[in-house]
């Protein structure tokens, strides 16, 4: 668990749902048919993308149009990219004290809205150094 659940809190995906994702087969009732197909697509695209067979493809197409499948594939691809990047470069969460400092710093920017969740950026050169890591 690390960079992967990073986005979960932003839209209010509950902890129950996070756990259910680990055991989808026994928690199918928590997901719609549409979600279940997309999740299977995500699993296979992540582990062996060439093995997405016609059966799964047909199922996918019965729930999503072409543009939506592009959306799904981009989410899946992008997070695979983040996972690889983090693994190869040994990216780990910073020390607790620094995280806290940043949480405080961030809280000065006003109320959080979900619409801001991915659009927030302070630029690469703003602000003073935050001291030793």
């Amino acid at each position: 668990m690390a960079a992967h659940t990073a986005l979960a809190g932003q839209l209010g995906v509950s902890e129950e749902l996070l756990d259910a994702l680990y055991h989808i087969d026994t928690h199918r009732h928590l997901f719609t048919a549409r979600e279940l197909v997309a999740l299977r697509f995500a699993e296979i695209m992540t582990t062996s993308a060439r093995d997405i067979d016609e059966e799964l493809w047909d199922e996918l197409q019965s729930h999503f149009d072409d543009g939506e499948i592009v959306e799904l594939a981009m989410v899946i691809g992008l997070f695979n990219c983040f996972n690889r990047f983090a693994d190869a470069l040994h990216i780990e969460p910073p020390t607790r004290s620094r995280s806290k400092e940043e949480a405080q710093r961030g809280s000065g920017s006003g109320e959080r809205k979900d619409t801001e969740a991915y659009g927030y950026e302070r630029g690469a050169t703003e602000g003073p150094d935050q001291g030793p890591v």
Binding site: H4, A8, L21, F31, A38, L39, A42, V75, I76, F79
Partner: peptide, 9 residues
């Protein structure tokens, strides 16, 4: 999309 991001990871 959130579910997919989590599941991929």
């Amino acid at each position: 999309k959130e579910l997919l991001a989590i599941r991929v990871s």
